[in-house]
Design a protein around this nucleic acid. Sequence first.
RNA 1: GGGCCUGUAGCUCAGUUGGCUAGAGCGUACGACUGAUAAUCGUAAGGUCGGUGGUUCGAUUCCACUCAGGCCCA
Length: 923
Amino acid sequence: MDYSKTINLPETDFPMKANLAQREPEMLKRWEAAGLYTAILASRDGAPLYVLHDGPPYANGNIHMGHALNKILKDVIVKHKTMMGFRAPYVPGWDCHGLPIELHVTRELGEKAKELAKIDIRRRCRKYADKFVKIQMAEFKRLGVFGNYENPYLTMAPAYEAKIVETFGNILKEGFIYKSKKPIYWCPTCVTALAEAEVEYDNHTSPSIYVKFKVDPSSFHADGVDAHNLFVAIWTTTPWTLPANLAICFHPEFEYSVFRAGKEFLIMADGLAEQMSSITGLALEDKRPIAKDSIENLKVSHPFIKRESKVIFGDFVTLDAGTGIVHIAPGHGQEDYVVGLKYGIDTLSPVDDEGRFTDEYAAMKGENVFDANPKIVQMLKDTGVLIFTNAIEHSYPHCWRCKKPLIFRATEQWFMKIDHRDMRQTALAETDRVVWIPAWGAQRFRGMVESRPDWCLSRQRSWGVPIPSFRCKKCQANLMTAETVLHFAKLSLTKSIDAWYSEDIANLVPAGTTCSCGGTEFEKEFDILDVWFDSGVSHFAVLDEWKELRWPSDIYLEGSDQHRGWFQSSLWPAIALRQRAPYHTVLTHGFLLDDKGKAMSKSEGNVIHPEEIIKKYGADILRLWVSSEDYRNDVRIGFEMLNQVADSYRKIRNTFKFIIGNLSDFSPDKAVPYAQLADIDKWMLHKLYHLANQTMESYEKFEFHMVYRRILNFCAVELSSIYFDISKDILYIEAKDAPSRRSNQTVLAEVYHALVRLVAPVLSFTAEEIWQFNKNTDSIHQQVYHPLRDEYDNPAIDEKMERLVEIKTDALKALELKRKAKEIGTSLEAELVIHAKSASARELLAGMADITRFFQVSKVTLAAEKAEGMSEYDNSFIAVAKSAGVKCVRCWNYFDRAQIGANPDHPELCARCTDIITRSSHE
RNA sequence: GGGCCUGUAGCUCAGUUGGCUAGAGCGUACGACUGAUAAUCGUAAGGUCGGUGGUUCGAUUCCACUCAGGCCCA
């Protein structure tokens, strides 16, 4: 007779094969149709709020793995907090203004771009950004990231733009904004400022000159040195910047000496003397080291303009070329500018928009700086301060558009003052108050806050929020007050920000605005705000404005590059206006690298796209992968890892399938009270209790890789390998409603309810699939974590089971030997004789009710002493023998012949199976 | 060149204040089962804890240097 129909095999249509690539999009449709995000928030009405404020990705291009990592992490946090019972809204945002988009648009337009008005460029940029917001939104949704996609925040939305202007106005009102000069890349041909990204490096031939700066004889004394013939030697490839020279810069740690060159004496770095000699042919003799304090005391004058050149120090000076002393023109070089700020040196830049000298260098007024180079060299020669000249070819910045060489030139820019009203101090205090994860973020951030210079807020571009400053036509004075800015902010709300470009200036300033000179006619200026300011005020524009949110946020979560970026650009406006940081916690993740630990780049050809992974594996695998990595460091990705994660996924999925299948005839009313459960059931609940607590704790600490680890281990070891394997003898074999079977099912149901929720923040699709498979009408994501009763916590049982599992481990080794010897196949064919080493373990074994089931053998004999034929293992002595008994064809256990077939109707069954069969056939 | 960070089995991660033969899961090999079956179970083999030097009775854990890699500056 075929008894296989009489056993309770797991029964379920829950598919083993996930087929995520197909099933997930269907799930997304259902979620969307059900308005799930809104429903989840509604289900948390009145609950405590948890605000994760989204850092806006740039609306340009498709998303990459970095985006996927970032958004999935955010989503896991939001879903976890929701499971914890919080109301955790998530408003995604996009950064829409800025150079990359403007460049894209203008490059596409080509020559036509020059003819288009700013407002037309802006219109095209807006359209372009809009397109990618939509694309990225769809991509984020596909990852299973829940959020308010109906009403996201866009930095180019009218209300947001108005908020940017308003915030700028408020900060101006508090006295943080000032205008000053700063050097930037400038194309004299196109008459425009250029951003770093628009600069192309190409070879260019420049004059290479060594120039001497005269030292005031009263400032230096040394035996054998004629102080009246003493010079500091410098080297430069831009003679035209010499009229703007205001200082010479030494390295604070290099060795410098006075060298005799004929009748003259030159000061330069020891390390470059030889190189200079060989280039210039100048013999440098009688080296006399010169100490740093002597250098500090030097008074040096400009080579051809009657003024002092200040002696300063900077560690950007190198020994690669030149003299080890750098000529400093703060108006014409980045390093010059920075070191100039430090020493309080003026930012002189006597060059106009077309690259011609101005009144400030009257001697060559109107002369193009590149044309002026040879003239300056000639003049240096005539004045007798030129040591040497030739030409060199080197890499030099060029304009991407006209391909002509660029200059670095100081222009008027708007700045936000950092050291105003103790803002830096307040920022540092706030830095200490914020929780940084990982902790080293605090140090890194602190260092940046301590040293950051004033924030240059203005850009000479088209695609951004205009700085509404204007000029008096009469006296040319610059006019911009809090009143005029706030007036425009209001106006932009009704008329759109583009009014700055389209409307007459008279309509944009408050009525009656008058310049101090009495002028009432104005003209607009067209600088825009740094896009970092746009996103930096998102906490005002979003947290204050969306009714479901609150200022400040609980957490910001971005890549660690944002320590310098968004975390800071968000901090300063917040400190300036509210004296506190807009976040309580700042969590950072590392960068995505390829499987060898190298950065991903197109040129390396090692880029993996999220789309690729979703197509091949599904979003849940990608999400599970994210959770498997310790994202606080850089994370590597490769197909080996993804395959591993896919294997883990299958383990978890099959665990659920097994549970579901074995619960097919179970309902809560059939549950068995805790007190009546068998030890192993209680043990399982104990393990579950701790798994749940530890998993939730790991979520709380944002250690998702520990969540992954714990759950996977639990599924593989506690459940699959131990509990399920042992329980099958009850679940399959016993009568459907046998108390032991109902006990198992009670435990399985608890495991199910706890586990499906614990897994949901990560495996969002699969958890929902499981949940809805079980005829639930709501979403798993509306649930809270399954509460487990404290009575499940049972350390005594745990201790006991631990000891028993140790013995079972021994037994498995013993059985494996027999299997290797081809004496047995399944362990049920074997019998064990066990003598545990410790008395306590012997006692435990003796007290076991289901010892053969636990060891999964047909017979266990407990020996009082170690006996002949036993082998030693870690915790016991064990002998294994092939059972001499007969197999019950139903339960597959082996019994003495006498115990089989007592009932003639069932000659091949053991007593237990006979009993089960006969009783069920009477029903 | 500077600031910060990372480097434990093939992979992903654990390793409490320095102290027993450095752990886990996965993968791999071999095997069992065929009543979780494109599943499940078992056993086993894998590590000079990036390298060198130092402190210490003793270091994966502390210090210095170094190599490789990352982020941010210059």
